[in-house]
Design a protein around this nucleic acid. Structure first.
Lengths: 336, 336
DNA sequence: AATACATGGACAAATACTTGACATGAGATC
DNA sequence: GATCTCATGTCAAGTATTTGTCCATGTATT
């Protein structure tokens, strides 16, 4: 990224743009200039005003100061730092309280209750209620607990009820839709360090069940990784393109359904080739054990469950990059 | 930016093609060249312009910059990176402080700027940034504007860029994934009156593109309906079960892809039979016109676009239930 | 022949500038 | 308390500039 050298003070913005960026009407900006000399934009040969980034900054400051009740004439002559000081002096709105951390032995009970409420919302096909319940849960529990104590058991329970005929497919469908969109909102909303390694998560082509991948993405985000969730059903070329563009340290795949898809084997080999040897492959999901041969061949780590994924991700973050390069290199050279 | 290295710079495209690809009229492209030297295409011996891919890239950038309110004369001389920087630098509007109902003529510009930021987030595969931008947009715009001025144009634009090869499938895939999850969060978050009629939205079996259905669901929620979005790809039995359980006044379907699916025809007939005559069927989507015969046969309303859907939903809310029962009854009895 | 393109000119819409006036509300004054 | 005054945001009228669009005419391509 450029260090923004074009952030110089040369006037560049027409008044319309300035108005949109500051939320002040053009008339008002001109009035402030005319009456109080609040800003001194440059002009073109045809007398059109052109504002610099600093001018915009100043107008924003002025707007905030004026909004605190002071008259424009009082502050129009002040320097930018003085304006900033005035804003600082203004009392800040009160902060919010944060929820108390639940006692450890209570967690199970609370989770169970939450799970039941989700279940009954699913039975009633009440999307809003279920979303609400999940939102509440996301405040009560840590990400890990939320995933492993609420979401996973919930989907398992719904699956069971469905197979028993107690729920229709539509109920399972709707519940997984809600969980999916909930997880989608969750995996992005972290605040990872910029130095954190990058993980790209998806499912291979023809793998349309994305719940596992979403759970993995959320788990990784909880472990402090920078996660890019790509959505399901992607051919190896696209996965590799994304991984390269994001300079991902690792790629996570979830394989759920057909335990014998020869094209998937090919796709996995191709993916390894496209990625090059320096990107780690993490593979999980119900059906992934059926592919253990290929996975070993291409040097992919097979993760049995989310807890295993969590451990692996944690270890990876704290290890030096060089190490796996060696691991993968060795496996690959064996392969040749 | 383009991941496709064969972005050759040899002039190849005549002005008509360039116009179609950039959305700029040929006259305008020539005017920009004549008056400001915005581009310098090659010429044949007979003085016909021939544009390179880079020229097209540049024109697209120029269009985006100009749409954010700058004069073409001010930016025509800038380099491509400088143009990209200007687009990047266009911040979210500072209109949060004041609940100004955004002057109607400004909406377009604000929407365009937002759209640009979403586009560049998609290009960078930056999921978090795109979600953030959509969240901001959801505060700035009404639901209708958000959908029809931001989301729909965004997906259309991304689709165009994808077909032109300027974006990889992965970019389109990721963007639609983000939009999907965003819409999923939106359609529930209404506060409909309890007396509002209920709408069940989904796509028929084998219809896996759910974007249209989600847009419809969000639109309906904006019109004050109680909406249950079921997710895509459902057989008629499940749709009917859900509609009956929710006592839905109407069922909305989106049909996007195969313009000739005989099983779909059967499914639609079956759905009507399962629903009984008192539930209205609303059908839209790119491919729905291909099924107009069946749709008429089963007494379904065909909606051309979201605006039509909006009008229809509005009218339905304000009409008495008895009326369509009659309408549907008539159609069905005709059919027997 | 029909279509697509080039050129230069003309025109209209959009955007900006200036000046001046008006409405409103907060203080100051009587 | 009524009135006056001033500060300030807004608007209108008239003009100028910028910019998108259209057209007439001629040439090239298909």
């Amino acid at each position: 990224m450029s260090i923004t050298p074009p952030s110089s003070s040369e006037p560049r913005h027409p008044i319309g743009v300035v108005a949109r960026r500051t939320g002040l009407k053009p008339d008002l900006i001109r009035a402030w200039e005319r009456r109080y000399g609040a800003v001194a934009p440059g002009r073109t040969e045809t007398r059109r005003r052109f504002y610099s980034d600093e001018d915009i900054e100043r107008l924003l400051l002025l707007r905030r100061v004026v909004n605190t009740g002071r008259g424009i004439s009082q502050v129009a002559g002040l320097s930018n730092p003085e304006l900033a000081a005035l804003i600082e002096a203004e009392p800040a709105p009160a902060a919010y309280a944060q929820p108390s951390p639940a006692a450890p032995e209570e967690v199970d009970q609370v989770a169970e209750a939450c799970l039941n409420r989700c279940l009954s919302a699913a039975q009633r096909l009440d999307v809003g209620e279920m979303e609400l319940e999940l939102d509440r849960a996301s405040v009560l529990f840590s990400r890990t607990h939320l995933i492993e104590r609420v979401l996973v058991p919930l989907m398992r329970r719904i699956g069971e009820l469905w197979h028993q005929g107690a729920l229709r497919p539509i109920h399972e469908h709707m519940a997984s839709s809600v969980v999916r969109s909930f997880l989608g909102g969750m995996s992005g909303a972290g605040h990872p360090e910029l130095s954190a390694p990058h993980l790209v998560v998806t499912t291979p082509a023809r793998q349309r069940h994305e719940l596992g991948a979403l759970l993995a993405a959320a788990t990784a985000a909880g472990e402090g990784w920078q996660v890019t969730y790509l959505g399901p059903d992607l051919p190896p070329e696209e996965i590799a393109a994304a991984a390269l563009q994001k300079r991902a340290r690792a790629v996570g795949l979830s394989i759920t359904y057909p335990p014998d898809d020869p094209m998937l084997v090919d796709d996995l080999r191709r993916l390894r080739r496209l990625l090059g040897p320096h990107t780690l492959l993490l593979v999980g999901g119900r059906a992934c054990s059926a592919y253990s041969a290929v996975l070993q061949e291409i040097g992919a780590l097979r993760l049995e469950d989310l807890a295993a994924l969590r451990r692996e991700l944690h270890e990876l973050r704290t290890r030096t990059p060089g190490n796996f390069d060696n691991i993968v290199d060795n496996i690959l050279t064996d392969d040749r």
